[in-house]
């Protein structure tokens, strides 16, 4: 393992207990524990996955629905704790996991900029400095004082993307985010991600669009039903994946 690894995923497994054992009520819990019926319907979303990403490299995750891509990203982002194994991350992260998750619909766009900035760990002064840039990029200049609940979904994602990509984070996590907005905005997003990459940001990228993955990523992790099927150079894996 080299010192320049920015994300190290070390034999990670993630187990979910399916709903049959989720007790919402205390009574149910007591009765079931007395009867020793605490059954665990286990589901392994990820099993023994290991890989590492070097600083400045970009990694794509591909696989079918349910193969564990989003779970993997959530573990790297620190949202989920792996059941087994270890993840080490050496840098600050900007999670773009689901655009607009941090928005409060009752607040105006302007207020949401500061709230979301704070969620990403920026203080007010830093956000003031970036504010013009966000407004400009999202092209929402005249709507900044409108509550977000009146926005269209395209507007929400534009604003969310603009906020999440301010500054130059060490790691940018994108989960299916480039499928939003119109064609022109998608291009703008790709361009911005490209710029960040040039400045040395490591990008972790999930998408079903192979062309996007191939364009952005150097390395690819191919997951199948929670197992690591292949890990290697983008071109090679894209070719095999497209053929499978």
């Amino acid at each position: 393992m080299g010192n320049d690894a920015i994300v190290t995923v070390d034999h990670v497994s993630m187990k979910f207990n399916l709903s049959s054992e989720k007790f919402d009520s205390f009574k149910e819990y007591v009765i079931k524990s007395i009867k020793r019926q605490v059954s665990y319907d286990e589901f392994w979303a990820l099993q023994d996955v290991s890989f590492e990403v070097k600083r400045g490299q970009s990694l794509g995750l591909v696989g079918l629905n349910g193969s564990g891509k989003s779970t993997m990203l959530k573990i790297i982002a620190g949202v989920l704790k792996p059941t087994k194994g270890r993840v080490a991350v050496g840098g600050n992260m900007a999670p773009l996991i689901e655009l607009g998750a941090g928005f409060d619909m009752d607040l105006t766009a302007r207020e949401n900029v500061f709230l979301n900035g704070a969620l990403l760990g920026y203080n007010r002064a830093q956000m003031e400095a970036q504010y013009e840039d966000i407004v400009h990029f999202s092209e929402l200049g005249e709507f900044m004082n409108v509550p977000v609940k009146n926005f269209s979904s395209g507007m929400v994602s534009r604003l969310a993307f603009a906020i999440a990509t301010i500054g130059v984070p060490d790691i940018l996590i994108c989960d299916e985010v480039l499928s939003v907005g119109d064609f022109r905005f998608q291009e703008k997003c790709e361009e911005r991600i490209g710029n960040m990459k040039e400045k040395g940001t490591t990008i972790l990228f999930v998408s079903h669009s192979l062309t996007q993955v191939e364009k952005i990523c150097d390395k690819i992790v191919w997951l199948e039903k929670g197992h690591l099927k292949k890990f290697g150079d983008a071109e090679e894996i894209c070719r095999i994946y497209a053929g499978s």
Partner: peptide, 9 residues
């Protein structure tokens, strides 16, 4: 919940 499921805080 919606927020906690998406990003680390």
């Amino acid at each position: 919940a919606a927020l906690l499921k998406k990003i680390y805080v």
